[in-house]
């Protein structure tokens, strides 16, 4: 076992994918000799050459559109959007072409490509460096959207995303890049389209993904003191949503809170709440609640602590789940 962090696990995933499949190419802004602003592509150009890992001009729509053409020709491009908000110029290419090409061509043209997007706050970044943009993508049919909550999953999910026959939006929780774990790689975890129970509990289910999985684990520890036995689900795949795993848990506990960084209005949690309400209504002891960011533009560094979910706020929310009715 070795101590490695999430950025290193992602780097190893790219390295192993490029070794196994000569069609895998990596490109984007600063991903070449520099190795990416989060070091995820560190050393790839040196190991595989400039034809396999290269810097592109600074233009996200061009990067994604170029990847579309490369995938049409049989390659498996993995492109990096440097930050969440920097991916917005590529939105038309992603929603009008990446997501639709298979459908438009009746399955004749598949686009096996991965768009890596570091997302979320918590790193004291300046404006435009802290957005949680996942719901823009999950709302688009044709896209697979995944996000790792653990270092082990970072490796495994990225390998699976690159192997997928469909385009994958791979969202990397940037506040967790330096989270270390004891890992022996290569090692695969669960299939890409499955949610996993990170911690079992009987009283309430916390449903989360990305950076807030760890926050929920910390909350579960603290909840013991309050007498609550908390179950934590890491969704991993946001589109498709593993409804079976979520519903099995909620039917057991009867209470659920969805936790994510992004603003709650029209956020991803709304979809989870709707699904749980529709499928688990008769098992629910209380309305399903959400803990997320306020409905404000992502705040500056000195205020972000108020925006991000934290254990106290999650515990307060758990406390509102109508326990007095029991």
């Amino acid at each position: 076992m070795a101590q490695i962090n999430m950025a290193q696990a992602l780097n190893r995933a790219l390295r192993d994918a490029m070794t196994d499949d000569p069609n895998v190419v990596v490109f984007g802004e600063d991903v070449g000799p520099y190795g990416g602003v989060f070091t995820v592509t560190d050393g790839l150009t040196a190991q595989f050459g400039e034809d396999r890992c290269f810097d592109s001009p600074l233009a996200e729509s061009g990067i994604v559109g170029t990847a579309v053409g490369m995938a049409m020709y049989g390659m498996r491009p993995v492109v990096e959007m440097q930050f969440d908000a920097f991916a917005y110029p590529a939105f038309e290419q992603i929603t009008s072409h990446v997501a639709k090409m298979r459908n438009r061509t009746r399955g004749k043209v598949a686009l096996p490509m991965v768009i890596r997007i570091p997302y979320g706050g918590g790193i004291g970044g300046v404006e435009h460096h802290g957005d949680s943009s996942e719901a823009y993508y999950t709302h688009t049919p044709g896209l697979t959207v995944v996000t790792p909550g653990t270092t082990a999953d970072a490796y495994s999910l990225l390998r699976a995303a690159i192997e997928s026959p469909d385009p994958v939006i791979f969202m990397e929780p940037k506040s967790r890049y330096w989270t270390r774990a004891d890992l022996q790689l290569p090692a695969r975890t669960d299939p890409m389209n499955r949610a996993v129970v990170r911690r079992t509990g009987q009283d309430v289910t916390l449903i989360s993904y990305g950076s807030t999985v760890q926050t929920c684990m910390e909350t579960a520890d603290a909840a013991k003191e309050e007498g609550w036995d908390v179950e934590v689900i890491d969704l991993r795949s946001l589109a498709p949503l593993d409804e079976d795993t979520v519903c099995a848990s909620v039917r057991k506990t009867g209470r659920a809170v969805v936790v994510h960084e992004s603003s709650v209005f029209s956020g991803y949690g709304a979809e989870v709440v709707a699904t749980v309400t529709e499928k688990c209504f008769h098992w629910l002891e209380a309305p399903v609640l959400r803990v997320g960011g306020f409905d404000v533009p992502y705040p500056p560094k000195d205020l972000e602590e108020h925006q991000l979910p934290h254990p106290d706020r999650i515990l307060d929310t758990i406390a509102r789940l109508q326990w007095e009715d029991q």
Binding site: T66, V68, M70
Partner: peptide, 9 residues
Amino acid sequence: PHAVGLAHA
């Protein structure tokens, strides 16, 4: 960009 990508590939 699609044309460029296919040509580059």
